[in-house]
Simulated scan of single mutants.
Amino acid sequence: MAQSRVSSDRVVPHPVSQVLGRPLKRGFFARSVHEVAPDLIGATLLMNGVGGIIVEVEAYHHTDPAAHSFRGATPRNKVMFGPPGFTYVYRSYGIHWCVNFVCEKEGSASAVLIRALQPTHGLAAMRRRRGLEDERSLCSGPGKLCEALGITNAHSELPLDAPPIALHARTCKVEIAAGVRIGITKAVDLPWRYGLKGSKFLSKRF
């Protein structure tokens, strides 16, 4: 099974630089989910110009009982079995939308769950959608960030390198923390949760 990989780069001051890096293309995701996940920390995700810096993610491999793809393709998760570089959006507990980025070669059915963002673009829209002012609470969880960015199932199966989505690579070195995933009950806890060390925008401390 693939192993997690954590950057040993030095910590940068917070907040992370808001300067947008180069656009990320679908080929970025055609790698092991355990390489893509930590490489997304510090990248910027925008939906229709609203979003921020990715500070927390979780990796899900098709061999993992906690992955939605573990028991095979369904109408809901079929995008996970397609080519990399597309969104997979699902509703969690019938309440919150969650967005994932499909990784690895076609048929692998592995993905990265985006857990938290540091808001940098369109804060007024986020506050209106979330009904609160606290910047730290706008995107500090997968359901919260989808609500803040206006992401629903209508945004599933979209390419990650075309409007309304924009993804930009990080522009500075970061130190990445790793730990067990949150709320996993169908598998042994694995250190496949990655986050920006020291960020105040995480859904939960490491």
Results as ranks from 00 to 15, higher is better:
A124W: 02
H34M: 15
F206L: 15
H68E: 12
A178F: 11
H61G: 08
I114L: 15
K25N: 15
S108R: 14
K78L: 07
H62I: 12
A124V: 01
E35G: 05
R91P: 01
L123T: 11
Q118K: 06
Q3D: 13
Q118A: 10
V50H: 05
K173V: 05
P164D: 09
A59L: 00
V79W: 06
G94E: 03
A111I: 08
H155T: 02
P23Q: 13
M126T: 02
V89R: 14
I95C: 03
R91F: 06
V16W: 03
E35K: 10
F29G: 13
K197E: 09
P159M: 12
L202W: 05
V112W: 00
R10L: 14
R26D: 08
A67V: 06
G85K: 11
I182H: 01
L117C: 02
T185M: 04
D161V: 09
R10E: 12
P15V: 06
C172N: 07
L117V: 09
N100Y: 06
K173N: 10
P159Y: 02
P163F: 06
V79Q: 07
Y90I: 05
R76C: 13
L20Y: 02
K78E: 08
T44E: 04
A2F: 12
A30Q: 13
T87Q: 07
L123P: 03
A148E: 09
L123H: 07
E175D: 05
R127M: 14
R129C: 09
H34R: 08
S4T: 12
I95Q: 11
V180A: 08
T87S: 15
V11F: 13
C98R: 02
G51N: 09
T87I: 11
D9Q: 15
I184A: 07
